[in-house]
Design a protein around this nucleic acid. Structure first.
Lengths: 235, 235
DNA sequence: GAGCCTATGTATAATTG
DNA sequence: TCAATTATACATAGGCT
């Protein structure tokens, strides 16, 4: 579309970015409406511009209903991990405390993500930088670990294949392995499902065949769509 | 597209509808991601198929954050019409939700700090790395800003002193300045956490320069777009 | 924001294997 | 029958006015 291929990178020119945003936003709203009508789907789209202006679309203009439906899905996933202690009453005092702590936590999260920093002093910023920097190192360590694990797994598989397959077969199967590999790597553990609500990047469904009726507990098919892979690796 | 103009009407053929849904959905996810990256926008997209299968996209994979931001917005708009909710009791259901979200937030914080990463998949780790890396850049930007501000303030003071003061007085006061400056930066205003349907919170306003961020009272783009009017009147 | 021009992207039908 | 591929007819959006 337009002139020239789209490079998936933030548009630096402020004017162009604004214009493109405006055009793409209306395109997105339109398409959301179309899929909603054509395919009888429930769609909710929320868009905040850089400046914080809100645009939204929701099937039947009922955003609340769809968001509720969404939360039902997400909570259903966390349900079985939490014990029944959850349903106990909370005293009014605790409510206040909980609210306060909640607010603190929220602020903390924003700060860790580099948002809302204006209220912090230089000292606080420096401390924050230190913490995030250390955290990032840990994250990268873990990533490395995962990747190396994957690589050695793959190498093992290939060696197994080499022992029995002809050269031709081997090439075949090496290529076939990639999708399988993704599924393997991404199908996430049930160890900690709580995160599922926050980081749900794993929900791009690939081709819809055997549909499962409204069953949030089933792990979604987790193949990264090609366009996203491209972007993730292109940085 | 395809053969023949698209008629905005539910596709009756069940197979075609499913295929079209699948394709359009991936298109929508792609475009959502694109506008998010290209235009630096916060996007949340939720799609339920006819059969109830959920697909979603959220900028930075943080659906919770965006939905919260959304609720903050819409809540602020209706705020003046509703009574003061602050002191109201929290319903048992909301208590459960609050607790669940609290746990999510805690987990999230740990992850951002590089702890408890074992439960994350490679893809989640990559997304996390991306977010923390970006956040760290913001933090360093802000730190720089603060330091430069401090420096120029100091220089200004020094020049003033040079015009009248002796060398000795100057050194005294330069040292005294640092704490005073920090106190100034720390004074922040916190909004209150509110609880209406779920939990909402007001962000602190950007304290410093002319940030426009988040003006909930201004009406969002609620003018019905032409393509929608067309459909509404065409049935 | 609207309108024009046009290179590209996409949705669907047609075809193939 | 059905997944995969190709062809076609639009739709989209970038750069410009």
């Amino acid at each position: 579309m337009g002139r020239g291929k789209v490079t998936l990178k933030r548009i630096e020119n402020q004017i162009n970015r604004q214009v493109t945003f405006s055009k793409r936003r209306s395109g997105l709203l339109k398409k959301s409406h179309e899929i909603s009508v054509l395919c009888d789907a429930d769609v909710a789209l929320i868009v905040f511009s850089t400046k914080g202006k809100l645009s939204e679309y929701a099937t039947n203009s009922s955003m609340e209903r769809i968001l509720e439906r969404y939360e039902r899905h997400s909570y259903a996933e966390t349900q079985h991990t939490s014990t029944n202690i959850e349903s106990q009453e909370i005293s009014p005092l605790d409510q206040v405390k909980l609210k306060a702590r909640f607010e603190l936590l929220q602020n903390r999260e924003r700060h860790l993500m580099g948002e809302g920093l204006d209220s912090l002093s230089l000292k606080e910023i420096q401390s924050l930088e230190q913490q995030v920097d250390t955290g990032l190192k840990h994250i990268r360590l873990r990533k490395n670990q995962l990747m190396l694990g994957t690589i050695s797994q793959l190498q093992k598989k290939i060696k197994e294949k080499e022992k029995q397959g002809t050269q031709h077969e081997l090439e075949q199967q090496t290529n076939d392995m990639m999708p399988a590999f993704h599924v393997g790597m991404l199908s996430n553990r049930h160890g900690n499902l709580r995160l599922a609500c926050l980081i749900r990047s794993d929900t791009f469904q690939a081709g819809g065949d055997g549909e499962v009726e409204e069953n949030p507990r089933s792990q979604p098919a987790t193949v990264i769509p090609p366009w996203m892979v491209q972007h993730m690796t292109n940085k």
